[in-house]
């Protein structure tokens, strides 16, 4: 270990002692890294410009109408209402399932579990799950969750390919991320807080509930909002769990029927419109739908940043 860290230093010392001058390579290197950064940012600018330019005519001619009208076959009247409703319902399912489960798992791993082999196995498992491609979660949804939902009688008219199954699939997808961000938040809570609480005779759950969780809450909340944003923008698994890419109308369905019926989501709407050969859908409506998606995600991100800034604490 020590050899590792001193070797570069020694080389630098040697170089210095040999009196070599710093060549143009140094500034060229700095310039190269700057170009790398600027290109990354440039891509973002190009992307936003492309989207806004494409969406402009829809935004100016349709305005709020675009977000409040349902899917339609004619480009003049097509809106993203179904997509927004679907995405919001999916996100609620994700929030209800993944957040309590993920936080509980993280609390167990960080606060309760001893550093044993099984604990480390669970931790490794969570880390690896976080790296599994989202489409594989789609397969899990298709192969297991859809059948499970149908078997439990929540399949509805969509035979299990519904918001409940889609939401559960996304919940499983983000679960490891919730566990990891919550674990990080819990780890940032200083040990002194716990020790003080133990010192006054609190049980472990009392310590966790009244001291550790409140202290970690802002960080947990930030992570949670970002995680939900991730679920909101996810597309591939939903395609496998049967999000509709064609025309559909929800009619006068109640909430339960909507949860168990045909659905779509905002990113899926973007996908299906961008596949249309019809120029209006691909070149104008798709970027407008993307704009709606980005605005919603940006709002979520801003909320997360505000939570983080308002409750920033130094221990």
């Amino acid at each position: 270990m020590t050899a590792d860290t001193t070797t570069p230093t020694r080389i630098a010392v040697a170089a210095k002692l040999q009196g070599r001058r710093v060549g143009w390579g140094e500034s060229a290197f700095q310039l190269a890294t700057l170009i790398g950064l600027l290109l990354s940012l440039g891509v973002l600018v190009a992307l936003l410009a492309d989207i806004v330019a494409g969406a402009w005519s829809v935004v100016t001619t349709r305005g709020a109408d675009f977000v409040s009208t349902p899917i339609s076959l004619s480009a003049d009247t097509a809106g993203v209402l179904n997509g927004i409703i679907g995405s919001v319902l999916l996100t609620i399912v994700v929030a209800v399932v993944a957040i309590p489960l993920g936080i509980a798992a993280a609390v167990y791993l960080e606060e309760y579990a001893a550093d044993t082999r099984p604990t480390r196995f669970i931790q490794t498992n969570v880390r690896n799950l976080a790296g599994v491609p989202s489409i594989v979660y789609g397969l899990l949804g298709l192969g297991v969750i859809v059948r499970l939902v149908t078997a439990l009688g929540a399949g509805g008219s969509a035979n299990g390919r519904n918001i409940i199954a889609g939401g559960l699939t996304l919940a499983v997808l983000v679960l490891p991320i919730v566990v990891i961000t919550t674990s990080e938040a819990l780890r940032a809570v200083p040990a002194g807080i716990r020790e003080a609480a133990y010192g006054v005779g609190a049980t472990q759950w009392e310590v966790t509930r009244h001291q550790v969780l409140p202290a970690a809450l802002p960080a947990i909340l930030t992570g949670t909002v970002l995680t939900l944003a991730r679920a909101f923008g996810e597309t591939a698994p939903l395609l496998l769990v049967g999000a509709a890419t064609g025309f559909f109308a929800t009619g006068g369905q109640g909430l339960m029927e909507q949860l168990s019926g045909t659905y779509t989501a905002l990113p899926v709407v973007v996908y299906s419109w961008s596949r249309q050969p019809d120029g209006a859908f691909r070149d104008e409506l798709a970027p407008a739908a993307i704009l709606v998606l980005l605005v919603l995600l940006l709002a979520a991100n801003a909320a997360a940043i505000i939570i983080r800034n308002r409750s920033e604490r130094k221990w």
Binding site: S72, L73, S74, S157, A244, T245, G246, F247, F248, A249, T250, G251, G252, Q253, E257, G261, T262
Partner: peptide, 25 residues
């Protein structure tokens, strides 16, 4: 056939807004 069925679904839906209907291809 999807365009015909979907166009009809849309027309049908505007006359019968209470009926949920989906067309895939």
């Amino acid at each position: 056939v999807e365009p015909i069925s979907a166009t009809n679904a849309q027309k049908f839906n505007s006359a019968n807004p209470d009926v949920a209907i989906s067309v895939e291809g």
